[in-house]
């Protein structure tokens, strides 16, 4: 069995000023582990986008990050409204963010597309009214 390390973060909903704290913490830990800067960059960007999504759409949630020899796995679980149309949500520029959120510079419709672009694997598990769990992997 290979070594595995898990970190858990609780994301506060509706607090934009704190979004990014979890990805920043993970980034520092990955640096201390000696993970290459390319992988760190991918994890940081994908996770930040995920965090922002949880803040905007789902009133927060829980992120679990596991690091093993082979990959970094991020599981973002929320109890939000769910994603009605995943293929639409995956389109660049498509956003269901509220107007006041957009006026803050968020909701450009790049969240999920960026999460996909910066990770090697991504799986979305969503149920309307129940919540969404996104699993992303960055290979090492």
């Amino acid at each position: 069995m290979s070594e595995q390390l898990t970190f858990t973060y609780t994301i506060d909903g509706n607090d934009f000023t704190r979004a990014g704290e979890a990805s920043s913490s993970v980034k520092n830990k990955l640096k201390m582990l000696g993970v290459g800067s390319d992988a760190i960059r991918k994890v940081a960007i994908a996770m930040y986008e995920g965090e922002i999504n949880m803040v905007i759409h789902a009133d927060g949630g829980v992120i679990t990050v596991s690091v093993s020899d082979n990959d970094i796995t991020m599981v973002l679980a929320d109890k939000g409204p769910g994603i009605p149309d995943i293929s639409k949500a995956m389109q660049e520029g498509y956003s269901t963010a509220r107007e006041e959120v957009r006026s803050l510079g968020f909701g450009a419709g790049m969240g999920l597309p960026n999460m996909k672009r910066f990770t090697d694997e991504m799986h979305i598990d969503t149920e309307l009214g129940k919540g969404t769990t996104i699993t992303m992997k960055v290979h090492l």
Partner: peptide, 22 residues
């Protein structure tokens, strides 16, 4: 790049050390 904050000499070693840190 000077990885001075890296815990161990190898990834495996660092992983073990990080788990001890936690």
């Amino acid at each position: 790049y000077e990885p001075v904050f890296r815990l161990g000499n190898t990834f495996k070693e660092s992983l073990k050390m990080m788990s001890d840190v936690e």
